[in-house]
Amino acid sequence: MAARDALQARLEQGIAELGLDLPVEAVPRLLDYQALLERWNAAYNLTAVRDPMEMITRHLLDSLAILPYVRGDSLADLGTGPGLPGIVLAIAAPGRQILLVDSNGKKVRFLREAIRALKLDGVRALQSRVEDVEGQFDCITARAFASLADMLGWGGHLLAPAGIWLAMKGKRPDDELAGMPPGFAVRSTHELNVPGLPAERHLLVIGRR
């Protein structure tokens, strides 16, 4: 338990530094997700991050940093990998319909097990290429998934008319802006300070023109 206590302390400190007010059950469920990811990762290589403390910082807190910008009743997380940020957002702010999309079968098997084990209501996982997904969503998230041009080219049809696209990036991708498809515009850019993460993180909020 000592190891989990240390992970919990790191997570709670990071949540406080982000200024977030999460449901009371969110922290233990986030730790359950991290433990499940760590266990599966040993066999399935779902993420290059192996160290549990690094998982708290690079996966959980990094995903939680965009929570203040998430809105609407439905969300699609494209190229979700092992559920980042989609599963983290589902735990931290339950109540919306969330679709987790990835083309990798191993990752989608993990996602389905995580949804079952963590009892994530309203969350489903789909193994598909982004361009083949159907439907429209109030909010779309994509974490270091592709260039803005590819991201919006493949998945732009999924954004509801008044929806917002949250593109998570490392360095501010000024060089990618010229390649964005017509019909989309960057509404705002935010520098994210992820507790314990020295690397640059930026969030671009994109909408339809």
Results as ranks from 00 to 15, higher is better:
Ala2Val: 05
Asp5Ala: 15
Asp5Thr: 12
Leu7Pro: 00
Gln8Asp: 05
Leu11Gly: 06
Leu11Ser: 08
Leu11Asp: 01
Glu12Cys: 07
Gly19Arg: 11
Leu20Pro: 06
Asp21Cys: 04
Asp21His: 09
Asp21Gly: 03
Glu25Met: 06
Glu25Trp: 02
Pro28Ala: 10
Leu31Asp: 01
Asp32Met: 07
Asp32Gly: 06
Ala35Thr: 14
Leu36Thr: 05
Leu36Trp: 03
Glu38Lys: 01
Arg39Gln: 15
Asn41Tyr: 00
Ala42His: 13
Tyr44Trp: 15
Asn45Phe: 00
Thr47His: 11
Ala48Arg: 14
Arg50Asn: 10
Asp51Cys: 02
Asp51Phe: 02
Pro52Thr: 09
Asp62His: 12
Asp62Ile: 04
Val70Phe: 05
Ser74Trp: 10
Ser74Phe: 11
Ser74Lys: 07
Leu75Phe: 04
Asp77Lys: 14
Asp77Glu: 03
Leu78Tyr: 03
Leu78Pro: 01
Pro82Met: 02
Pro82Val: 07
Gly83Met: 12
Ala90His: 01
Ile91Tyr: 02
Ala93Leu: 04
Asp102Glu: 07
Lys106Ala: 02
Lys107His: 08
Leu111Asp: 07
Ile115Leu: 08
Ile115Thr: 06
Arg116Thr: 14
Val123Met: 11
Arg124Ala: 09
Arg129Pro: 02
Glu131Leu: 11
Val133Asp: 00
Gly135Arg: 07
Gly135Val: 05
Arg143Lys: 15
Trp154Asp: 08
Trp154Met: 15
Leu158Gln: 07
Leu159Cys: 10
Leu159Trp: 06
Ala160Thr: 06
Pro161Thr: 13
Ala162Trp: 00
Ala162Asn: 13
Gly163Asp: 05
Ala167Ile: 09
Ala167Val: 08
Lys169Trp: 08
Pro173Lys: 09
Met180Trp: 11
Met180Gly: 11
Pro181Tyr: 02
Phe184Asn: 11
Phe184Val: 06
Ala185Arg: 15
Arg187Asp: 04
Thr189Cys: 13
Asn193Arg: 14
Val194Ile: 15
Pro195Tyr: 12
Gly196Asp: 07
Pro198Gln: 13
Pro198Arg: 13
Ala199Arg: 10
His202Glu: 12
Leu204Asn: 13
Gly207Phe: 09
Gly207Lys: 12
Arg208Tyr: 10
